[in-house]
Design a protein around this nucleic acid. Sequence first.
RNA 1: GCGCCCGUAGCUCAGGUGGAUAGAGCGUCGGACUUCGAAUCCGCAGGCCGCAGGUUCGAAUCCUGCCGGGCGUACCA
Length: 557
Amino acid sequence: MATVRNRLKSMLARSAQSIAGYRDLETEVTIELDIPRNAGHGDYASNFALAVSKRLKRNPREIASEIVAGLGDSEGLLEKVEIAGPGFINLFVCPSAWQEIIREILVDPREYGRLKGAEHPMVQVEFVSANPTGPLHIGHGRGAAIGDVLANLMEARGCTVQREYYINDAGNQMDTLGRSLYYRYMQEIGENIEFPDNHYRGDYLRELAREFIADRGESFRASPLTECLPVFTEYAGRRIFEGIKEDLDVFGVRFDTWFSERELHDRGLVAQTIEYLRDRGFIYEHEGALWFRSTTFGDEKDRVVVRANGVTTYFAADLAYHRNKFERGLQSVIDIWGADHHGYVNRMVAGVEAMGESRDAVRIVLVQLVNLLRGGQPVAMSTRGGEFVTLREVVDEVGKDATRFIFLTRRTDSPLDFDLEVAKARSNDNPVFYVQYAHARLCSIFEVARERGLEFDWRATTPETLGLLQVRQEFELMKLLGQYPEVVGECVRSLEPHYIPYYLHQLVSLFHGYYHDNRILGEDAELTKARLCLALAIKEVIANALSLLGVTAPEKM
RNA sequence: GCGCCCGUAGCUCAGGUGGAUAGAGCGUCGGACUUCGAAUCCGCAGGCCGCAGGUUCGAAUCCUGCCGGGCGUACCA
């Protein structure tokens, strides 16, 4: 069913067609509805008359009254309409329209807020994609949460979504990793050898070296590095990657596909892509290197794809990778990147466009950095320096739910302070418990109802019974429940999940206040039924929203 | 230097496509449990929305210029 807002919008749009002079305008003015802050201004308000008054050269209040006169409210949606101030049209919706929302939710709670369109565009969300040279850190965790939830949201809006992890397992960073393990290995078996600069210093490689010794013994003591390096590289890469998968699993993140960069090279796709772009006239030679003409598509300078020494760049692999994505039949690609990669956005979009895709076939979400704090004090983080806090440590310490919720409660392009002490607190500081508590509390109401032998089936509840919901907070709750589909839609439109946690907080806060002031299980049997319907709808929407966030909705806490 | 992002309450942050009196949490202070969960609720205080112009009926929101902060500016990965 269309939302109340959309039904009102089309009513207004029909009426606007009959305004004198409106149809002569070259472009239509889209009708938008605001929810006024002040309840006296109605449930929804339109500024349409103000927006067109200049172009029609007419008084906005006159226009507004014509629109109001022409409103055909065949559904009986409106209780009253007022023209206010300079020409706002304030719409007051009938109570029954809000009460219907409860039934709409309860018919299929898990589908509420979702869209089942005829089209199911194939969308890929590529995220995390951390180099397999060390464990995931807290910043990766933020990208993981955002990517995972965006994927959930796209699915909710009718897309077929593929979650992909791009593994940067090519290039000399893997050799550096292998050498790093080798040096730790030699140290662990008692060789007096210095750990060189520019290698991975993290403690995880000391641990890995000890595991390696347990697995393979000390037989490489006499082997020259050049000879045994592949063994160390393979071991380190494999074990670290296994660790990454496990950490993601604990964090509740799963991928459909793992795409290897090395495979891209091995299958010749990088070379093929360069040839493909050369055929299309976007590759030229300059000072011994091959360049991609990304300036054609708005990049600030052209980019090297093959260096003078014959080695392809990372960007060349990225071009091949994105070409491959579209060849796999994806219609839309969303890349979740760390904000420190923002300089690569233009060249990547240029690359996609050069391959004949539209500019917006690829959308890049930049996730800002996470500042890790403990009790207000910064915690130093540096991969090479080896002093950092892993995602796993954070999740083990503060839990999956709190970690995800905090990551998702900020705009993606806003830097995030993550304080371990706050995240760990089982208190008001921690918004996830506030929301989860409401769910547990709602569950316990139904538990008590059962204990009291109360017969309750929302299907048997009539509109007349729901009409007993008349308290101010009940209307506020019903209206807010009605907004949920729009909130989900807004997240998808803007690729920003944070609206969901804010919505949840608002909903739960309203509920806690309502609960405090009113008895759900009261003296009046019919009113109790009506309130249980409302309570059930709230509980379902909370669970629905939490599941989109990948956060559990506990029945008890 | 150039580019991208950000400056909103003491702190951390929300404020689609411009709307009517700028919001929340935390913190401070003061109240509310004999009841369906007090991990809750209610109230007080707290603001030149970085600064200065501009656009218009109307700007936290759009434009320009400053100031301040983060990141990026490789034939690295």
